[in-house]
Design a protein around this nucleic acid. Structure first.
Lengths: 157, 157
DNA sequence: CTCGGTGCAAAGCTTTTGCATCCGC
DNA sequence: GCGGATGCAAAAGCTTTGCACCGAG
């Protein structure tokens, strides 16, 4: 069931990517599709290095440069989203077929949670109107502390 | 008038900083106060390098390491806020006595505008309640395109 | 007098770039 | 075959670290 859904999602994603590459006159190289596949088989956030390493472990012959290049394109066509969660390490995430969401980061244990709130859309609309902007997307990150038992390492430092 | 206000703000800021340093048993070094002063005499966003350079130009003897160190402390005690606007270059901004605001970035000309919307507070409250989090602060960035004449360099790349 | 803080330079890490080679079109 | 894309390694850019010295408490 989950596998079926994922396959369906992935087929759609491949089509979208193919169409985008054609529209932009970019080449449909095998590397680009392998990277797309690897990303959509992952759960949650990841950084460039871990993506690169896991492809190396599967004996794909890719370079970091190509991973960066492909990620840029995938972000451009909205199949992947890029986040800057504080530290200087970009985090990525597949974004097609998954509910849009924002992030909540625990400043103690650095865990990242997700949440959805439709009211952000209202804010975007208001700002678009008042400031004469065409808002395409947003990044909302809430920083705080877990108040439940999940967060063990509270007073670490 | 503006000068008076700034002096008043700066006096308060110095007191807060002093109290924080004492509370945390950190030393009240001249470097830390000079850096605080330089930050509060600036308008808008800045990065570490430009802060460092302008202090060098004033013939202060500071090192980048000290600038980074002091900024960390100032962020901790909420006198300065740190932003990661996409690129891997942290941007800072004084934050005491100025209205809290969020940012709007033009993806074409990379201009950064500011806006306020009280509804973000509601979202923070809801998330705090539902997810059992104590939200301390947030970062909301809207990405889009100017639709007015201000943005000249639209189809640059 | 102690030991936290500083300046300086080197090291670390992520990302970008240069170049020869490869291969999609 | 042309020119974009790749792999590799070197370079670049921001930030952190190591160490000897300085100076706040």
């Amino acid at each position: 069931m989950a596998t079926l859904l994922n396959t369906k999602v992935f087929d759609e994603v491949k089509q979208i990517f193919t169409a985008y590459l054609e529209k932009k006159n970019l080449r449909k190289t095998p590397e680009r599709f392998v990277i797309l596949e690897e990303i959509y088989s992952r759960e949650g956030h990841f950084d460039v290095e871990s993506l690169y390493i896991s492809m190396k472990n599967k004996n794909y012959r890719v370079s970091r440069a190509t991973v960066y290049n492909s990620l840029d394109i995938l972000v451009e066509c909205d199949l992947v989203s890029k986040h800057q969660f504080g530290q200087n390490l970009a985090q990525y995430e597949k974004s097609y077929g998954f509910k849009q969401h924002d992030h909540l980061i625990c400043t103690d244990c650095h865990k990242v949670l997700e949440f959805c709130d439709p009211r952000i859309q209202n804010i975007q609309n208001t700002v678009s109107d008042i400031l004469n902007f065409r808002v395409m997307h947003h990044s909302l990150i809430l920083y705080g502390q877990c108040t439940n038992t999940k967060c063990e390492n509270r007073p670490k430092k």
